[in-house]
Simulated scan of single mutants.
Amino acid sequence: MKTRHVLVTGALLAFGLTAYGCETKNKPKKLAINQTEINLSDTPSSKTKNNTVKIALLLDTSNSMDGLINQAKAQLWDVVNNFTHAKCGNESRPELQIALYQYGKDNLSSSEGYVQQVLNFTDDLDEISEKLFSLSTNGGEEYCGKVIQTSLNQLDWGNNPDNLKMIFIAGNEPFDQGRTPFKEAASRAKKQDVIINTIFCGNYEQGIHGKWKEGALLANGDYMAIDHNRQVVHIETPYDNVIIQLNKKLNKTYISYGSLGSTKKEKQILQDSNAEALEEVVMVKRAISKSSRMYKNSDWDLVDASEEAEFDASKLKKKDLPQELQDKTNQEIEAYIAKKKAERQEIQNEINELNAKREVYIASQQNEENGELENAMISAIKKQAAKKNYRWE
């Protein structure tokens, strides 16, 4: 399909939801005795491992790429919110990790090929948002082969063949620039079971001429073209303001602790502000993400930490606790955490209920220009993913 005006949402969803590998329950083992096969039932230790989708996002930050960066900032939450509903097989919820690279900007190191790792693989959504908002553009040299090769060298892609490992690279210069041959980088990716998806920012045929499609096909990926300067279309709903107010209440249920606590909580608030500064609807989408399983902060929030199997309130150091809990007994601390947990669950439930109504409203307001193409893409993606044992609910 020749797609000239696809928002980054569609591109990211194509990558975030398309499933090329999915680890389900361990298959029954068979033991042959006297030419008779006996099925061995799973032992208690035979548990399904977490399915992990690893996505490395490689963004061209040279001149004229401001539109691309702005779309990525605005539509991160669309990716997360759609991914929330993914399931592998009948029970496993896949984990999502994102890494971020920028390439092609003048003030990046020339000795490194104008390539920089901005963020290693992480599931910290606030960190991902922060790094996206830190990006700026400037003129430079765009070497696609180099940035792909660098991401393959630096990132821990793991060896689990059932996990989905993907690069998607966006830019608007020929794909074959630089000293690192893109074919060599693509071959390396294929050997590591890493899929390369390419997004050309411009005319579809021009991207093909610039070898962006070839770069994708060499590593089992997909090629797309987008109008990166197109205004992101958001549909406002009657539920948006209520969700934004509920998000402010949601933030009050977080109990910061440890050396990271105060800094991480400040980052949470700052990324709310960044989202709202783009547009209120972006803040709504972020609030929905914060009410999902994808938003986890056990490294600095006591409510999320209490969900971990090894959590023990009696082992918390008083100096690591917020001021209001430092003179409390273990029982009082546990009661306080339980109270905040209940408050959070109630707020998240309310946000999710409002979002269900919001989605119905959006569906009724969409027209062919802002909805048909994206809906068709998502439908195709889910159909393809179903063949790999993914489903949505």
Results as ranks from 00 to 15, higher is better:
A225L: 07
S262A: 09
K315D: 12
V242I: 14
Q206F: 06
K248M: 15
M283A: 10
K131H: 04
A14Y: 08
V6R: 09
E184N: 01
M224D: 04
T122E: 00
I337T: 01
S306Q: 12
Q75K: 05
E350W: 11
D162H: 07
L125T: 08
G207T: 06
L58H: 10
L31A: 12
Q71T: 06
H209K: 15
Q345G: 14
K290A: 15
V284G: 00
E205P: 09
A380M: 12
A32E: 10
N63V: 05
V282R: 01
A225M: 05
I69Q: 13
G221A: 12
V303G: 08
D301M: 07
I128H: 03
I195K: 05
D301T: 07
E91M: 04
G261L: 03
N203Y: 06
A56P: 03
A287K: 01
A170C: 15
G221Q: 11
Q71G: 04
L250H: 03
I33L: 06
K165F: 01
G67Q: 03
D124I: 04
A380F: 08
A19K: 14
N274Y: 15
N153A: 11
Q384T: 14
F168I: 13
Q75A: 03
Q348R: 14
W212P: 03
T122Q: 00
W77M: 08
N370C: 00
E359Y: 00
N138W: 14
A189M: 01
N197G: 09
D162N: 06
Q71H: 04
T329A: 07
I337G: 01
K87E: 10
E236S: 08
S187R: 11
P94I: 05
S292V: 11
Q75P: 05
N297D: 08
N50C: 08
G89V: 02
